[in-house]
Design a protein around this nucleic acid. Sequence first.
DNA 1: CGCTGCATGCTTTTT
DNA 2: GCATGCAGCG
Length: 790
Amino acid sequence: MSSFDENEAFEAAGRPSLSSLAMSARGTPYLDDLNPAQREAVEALDGPVLMLAGAGTGKTKALTTRIAHLLNTGRARPNEILAVTFTNKAAREMKGRVERLMGQTVEGMPWLGTFHAICVKLLRRHAELVGLKTNFTILDTDDQVRLLKQLIVAANIDEKRWPPRMLAGLIDNWKNRAWTPDKVPVADAAAFNNRGVELYAAYQARLKALNAVDFGDLLLHVVTIFQTHADILAQYQRWFRYILVDEYQDTNVAQYLWLRLLAGGHKNICCVGDDDQSIYGWRGAEVGNILRFEKDFPGAKVVRLEQNYRSTPHILAAASGVIAGNADRLGKTLWTEANDGEKVRLIGHWDGEEEARWIGEEIEAMQRGTRGLAPMGLDSMAILVRASHQMRAFEDRFLTIGLPYRVIGGPRFYERMEIRDAMAYFRVAVSPDDDLGFERIINTPKRGVGDKALQSIQRVARANGVSLLDGARLAVAAGELSGKAKGEVGKLVDSFDRWRRLTLNPQQSHIELAEQILEESGYTEMWQNDKTPEAPGRLENLKELVEALEQFDNLQGFLEHVALIMDNETDEAGEKVSIMTLHGAKGLEFPAVFLPGWEDGLFPSQRSMDESGLKGLEEERRLAYVGITRAEELCTISFAANRRVYGQWQSALPSRFIDELPADHVEVLTPPGLYGGGYGAAAPGFGGGDIEERAASANVYNSPGWRRLQERSQMRGTSQPSEARNIVIDMTAVSSFTQGDRIFHQKFGYGYVMAIEGDKLDIEFEKAGSKKVVAKFVVAAGRDGEDVPF
DNA sequence: CGCTGCATGCTTTTT
DNA sequence: GCATGCAGCG
């Protein structure tokens, strides 16, 4: 039986009586801070509770106060409370707020964390029950895909018709539903050219051989252990006296089973969520979990948090109007004591670039203070898009006008190529049998070790039943490699031997070792010699990676933790507008929010509707609800008639969600005639109507205003070259650049100044084409790039 | 083995 | 429009 460490020790010591733990003498002042619904949710400590918390209703406050109350009344010790979140950020926030409420650091809430982090902890204790060693490694998506690719090739399947990513998605889905290979239903097993389940089983076998798991396994293995070892399950059921779950609407089947199993004893489970904010169906979340709660947990108490502390009544009404279009809701009515404020604003544009230009100008106006609103800092404003490719229009525009912005989302720190490469070096140094890591870096930087050399090494390794690193060693000794590869691989193997010895030396600083590895492997040098605009950033990231090591005692510890902490906290200083996806905005709030791209096909996304029909449309509608409810004071929705999609111009109709906005709470900014056909003006019954009907009635494209715009836009389009030729070159301008200067720009790379117009430069970039950019965003670069300016 | 040039095919994203 | 991935050549 595996150890229960802190639990066992505690049980052996005997459970202190509840009264001795109770600190009720201190009173419960924190309860006075709550509204009646919140208070009800906090005080209903026993039995199943569903806290239905609408956007901005103080759910984190209720959740954390509930934890404080559990501790304060002596119902549970900190380590007897299981509190799960989806993200590290949410877990951190919760921990911090509990500590503030308790007025002290909560000594160990070891079981407050993400589903995955908690599962890692459980799985390390019981790894042997699913055929793993306790030091198993966690593969990221990249490793997962590379592994699957090997299996697909080995199974003689055409990887072009059946791409590894597709299989990865399929297996993820199955794992989300808690289907082990033997449990995949026959109907689904036909997937992936009839070989899906076979490959899934092969993949699991390979993972076991590598002593590795993927993210899905973390949950699935633990569920399997619980299902097959009643004694172990019973111990945890006893141990976790109270369970709290954040964002319950986002749980998938595996997480749901996990929770049900653990809550099976005390049944003290409190789930917090909002069915209207379920936006992760596409990655396995089941809204059904929250809709079914009362059936799953008979006698459940349902508490609704409906008082909103975030948004104005107009914003709430607009959001409510949209979400009312969904069936199968548990239903909530948000209300607020706030004053009316501004109506939600709606504006149409000719195309996506104009939309970006308008929003840029609007942001600058709001900075100065406009519409009777106080001047707003850029940190108070956000642009929320449906799909990340929409961000480019804004980035381009903001770079041109010199408006500071930050993109939230994007590739996470630990997902970046250079970070993964560096980590692969560390991994192999720490565990020489990490074949995936070795394979990743054997030819990075380029060592002249190509496909053929790698295949020889793999062959030797397999024939001798050893790791790739040892296979490489043997291949070199046996003269299996050609000239260049032989020398290089030999050197690499020697290096790893040396680094390995250093990892085992307790005197060796792991930070210095990490630097040494990156230096000696030639990895740092590779990026120093790289002339692409990304290279400096990558070197910067490597520096950051090494700095992050300081928080750990050794490389091993660092590697173990990092797999789960894919944080992307880029707290770049300075006032900046945030640009992010609607998904990325969940849980955030901003005084002013822009929601561009409300066009049918883009939002709601055509693909979502094609793939998931009405269910997909409803999820898109929830996304619209999430978007609007991020706004505190000012919410601006916009759409464009034309947009470049995959380089192709396409026109679209305004989103059907626009028709669903309640007219009383919307101010249409679009000039009359521009959008005369649909919203408010002409059609009182804009709530209904299918798309064809609206297309027929929308005289948008025939209206005089629209025509005017179109003409203007076309004129602009064709006149640009001549305008450019007429630019007055002002040599006295503030900028210190002259025509013909070679410059460097953070995003666009190298280019030459073609013309100067005030503080704006016309630059012909080597890679990015010609752009207008504010002078302060570029730096002088030497001729032919010999002088990299950092 | 590595580079270049063409064909392809696309949401959303945490862990 | 762009990144990725493959085939073909040096």
